[in-house]
Amino acid sequence: MHPRADHHPPAIHTRRAATRLLALLGVAGFVGTARAAAPGWPEEAFKQTSEADAIKALYGKSAATSDKITLEVPEIAENGAVVPVSVSSSLADVTAISILVPGNPLTLAASYTLPAGTLPSIGCRLKMAKTSNVIALVEAGGKLYSTSKEVKVTLGGCGG
């Protein structure tokens, strides 16, 4: 029905339309991700799905195992939605404590910055999707230390 030429509109129009479409998509994409994370929140670290990547994104260095960290977790968690975790350390000059759960979809669970004068002891409650190690990371004197313990989860708790 149509002359063949109609099937090939001038390239410029196509290009303009494409540009417009891209611009729209760009704007939409921007709006979609525009909401800035809360100031100071380590967004990249919280996106990571492996222990090594999360540690790297958070501190940019690797951790040495230390027996000067006390990680208190239940051996068996009947409800993975609420697993009490506490981390304390006898290391001097502790500046940060982080908790990683490699069995969760996102590895990093919580990260605390401790200004001078705050005691190196934190307690909180985490969700665990399944049986997994829980890793406590402690930054002290500019160095990174870790310890880990396994928690058996009877009922997965990503349900919160």
Binding site: W41, P42, A81, V82, L108, Y112, T118, C124, G160
Partner: peptide, 15 residues
């Protein structure tokens, strides 16, 4: 405190 989605509902913290 920097928290991800793995912190339990109605979060509790002690320090």
């Amino acid at each position: 405190a920097n928290w991800g989605p793995a912190v339990s509902k109605d979060p509790y913290i002690k320090f």
